[in-house]
């Protein structure tokens, strides 16, 4: 990798570095599917927060295929997979005292979910 010079910076900023992967992988889930977030507790890196684990939600949309942080962070490969926006009701996450109408959307990797 050659030395990065100031002249290169504007293009590097404008281009960024997408974690999207150009791979035609068959999605496991589709919009409207009911899922449960897995109850996993890896001691390594994950983007599945504790407050989502074991909760039931609905697939809202498929964002396409991205690098899987859990393996990438541990230098174990990109393991590309679909990422979905998943809707959980506030009551599913926080119990009956939460406002009935409110909801939370979170982007979940395929490996974090199972169909219910």
């Amino acid at each position: 990798m050659p030395t990065i010079t100031p002249e290169q910076i504007p293009d590097l900023v404008r281009k960024g570095a997408s974690c999207r992967v150009d791979a035609a992988l068959e999605p496991l889930f589709k919009t409207g599917d009911k899922i449960r977030a897995l109850n996993i507790n890896p001691a390594t890196h994950t983007r599945l927060p504790r407050y989502i684990r074991g909760k039931e939600g609905v697939i809202d949309r498929d964002h396409g295929v991205f690098v899987f942080p859990d393996t990438q962070a541990e230098m174990k490969g990109a393991k590309p997979q679909h990422v979905y926006s998943v809707r959980f009701t506030a009551q599913e996450l926080w119990g009956a005292d939460a406002p009935q109408k409110d909801s939370l959307y979170i982007d979940l990797f395929e490996d974090y979910m199972e169909k219910t």
Partner: peptide, 15 residues
């Protein structure tokens, strides 16, 4: 207002 749905987006992936 209570009758408005609050939607929270936790942007934990690369979107």
């Amino acid at each position: 207002p209570e009758d408005v749905e609050v939607r929270v987006w936790d942007s934990n992936a690369e979107l």
